[in-house]
């Protein structure tokens, strides 16, 4: 799994590629926790190159979302597809979060 972070306006774009599994998910959670501690509040997860996610990844996302919620932050998702989208839908995460087909659409929704 690789994580690339960049700022665009008020949004922090977190592009995650590869596999988010029980081995790698803690790295994602820790990285977002650090960004949150540095003051970032609006995150767009660009998952267009994420090919696999397990419940460990979902747990890290949920833990991050809970931490953000308490600080009035937001966690959006862009480009989810294939098996990752399947897992989001099956686990109910599709209705728990804002999912956008593209990064542009996610950024526009923030304004």
């Amino acid at each position: 799994m690789e994580i690339q972070v960049r700022k665009e306006g008020s949004a922090t774009i977190v592009a995650v590629s590869g596999k988010m599994d029980a081995v790698t998910a803690p790295d994602y959670e820790q990285r977002l926790r650090e960004l949150l501690d540095q003051g970032a509040k609006t995150f767009v997860n660009d998952f267009s190159n994420l090919v696999y996610i397990s419940s460990a990844g979902l747990r890290s996302i949920l833990a991050t979302a809970k931490a953000l919620k308490s600080q009035d932050g937001a966690l959006l998702f862009a480009g989810i597809k294939g098996p990752v989208k399947d897992v989001f839908e099956i686990s109910g995460f599709g209705s728990l979060f804002q999912l956008h087909d593209t990064l542009d659409s996610a950024l526009k929704s923030i304004g």
Binding site: S54, S55, L62, A65, V87, I90, S91, L96
Partner: peptide
Amino acid sequence: DMNADVEERQIGGLGCFL
């Protein structure tokens, strides 16, 4: 609980469900 929101949703149980 699939209907719970972010605050209420429990972190465990997903693996067995999948």
